[in-house]
Design a protein around this nucleic acid. Structure first.
Lengths: 194, 194
DNA sequence: CGCATAATATGATGATCATCATATAAAGGC
DNA sequence: GCCTTTATATGATGATCATCATATTATGCG
């Protein structure tokens, strides 16, 4: 073994992270293999030593995107009560920062409309990530909430939809106003303090 | 004038309608000029006699998509009261039929994540259509609703988000369950009868 | 310090696509 | 029925891209 045992794995990880950002900012079709490799500091040629196809990269990128969001929220809500965690989530998600940084944001608010056009492997990866997000949120709902998964899915729908709409609005102040209103409405509905 | 005055206009309209469907089912980048022309019963060559660029076609397609949705709902809600119109809208939008037919559905639930990556002309067309949808819905809210536009935008967010999520869920029964739950929750919140 | 090999780079290849140049066809006035 | 003009078709062109074949580099063992 001429290179360290971990060298290739580390390279692969770098590529996947570059892809996770690129896929979110430019879409699965909008990004080229060469571009991702360049972003990872490499050239396109070595790509097929790491992935059997571009689709496999997209799958890994989606897993990574959901995973890193998930890890970030786990950190943010560590030790918080259910309602604190939920409030933190809403306050972090429905924001101008999220609107303006799709590359690091929630894949649901970035890839949703591309998804039905992707191959099965990509759709499966997305669905896995989506369910894990929904289940996490369902776990933050008040105990005894009936059908918590569908409530959580509705919440994700409204939050992601709000960010998507805010992205379509060119006027920053207007977008900000809509996001703030959505945030307050959601928190009010969930019985959270403003 | 060797062809009838309206011949070219009619052809153009056919092309735009084909594009409106194609853009929604395959995305602005996923669709090719030749494909759209073929769907309209033509070959690709004549395209530039009708449009200066593919982008111009996408703009026209988005206008048409929003316009035809808008005309359909105007027909459906003709003569209805505000709350009837709103209920009809929710019951038509948050459905499996809409989930399964993006090509004829709401552009918000189909193009949202592609949009930030498009050129200004396309984004402007989308924003125009989005605002007109939001204003239409705002007009159906109970009189005296404060900040009706942001309430309407939230509604669109939740409805479009629900359809997007339902499209990501491979299990039809599960998707149906989520949509029904979202529909009931939205109507309940708006004070509408189930 | 050189060598075997894993990791990456360079450089095709063939496909798809927007765009454009040129050729053909259709349609109504004469 | 023919001829002019408008509308459409055929057929490049150059760009981008996924994929693959081959060359080069870098690493640590002997």
């Amino acid at each position: 073994m001429r290179y360290s045992d971990t060298h290739k794995d580390e390279t692969r990880k770098t590529v996947v992270q570059a892809a996770a950002a690129a896929v979110r900012s430019k879409g699965p079709e909008g990004v080229s293999v060469a571009e991702v490799m360049a972003a990872a500091g490499l050239t396109h040629g070595g790509f097929y030593a790491h992935f059997p196809s571009k689709e496999a990269l997209v799958v890994a990128a989606i897993d990574e995107a959901f995973g890193s969001s998930s890890r970030r929220f786990a950190r943010l809500t560590d030790g918080a009560t259910r309602s604190e965690a939920l409030a933190t989530f809403v306050d972090t998600y429905v924001t101008m920062r999220h609107r303006d940084h799709p590359e690091g944001g929630c894949p649901v608010a970035t890839l949703s409309s591309d998804l039905p056009r992707q191959g099965r492997a990509v759709r499966d990866a997305y669905e896995r990530g989506l369910w894990s997000l929904v289940r996490r949120i369902a776990g933050w709902l008040p105990e005894g909430t009936p059908d918590p998964e569908s409530v959580a899915a509705s919440l994700v729908a409204e939050m992601a939809g709000s960010v998507l709409i805010a992205r379509a609005i060119s006027d920053d102040a207007e977008a900000d106003r809509l996001l703030a209103a959505a945030r307050h409405r959601i928190k009010h509905r969930m019985g959270l303090p403003p």
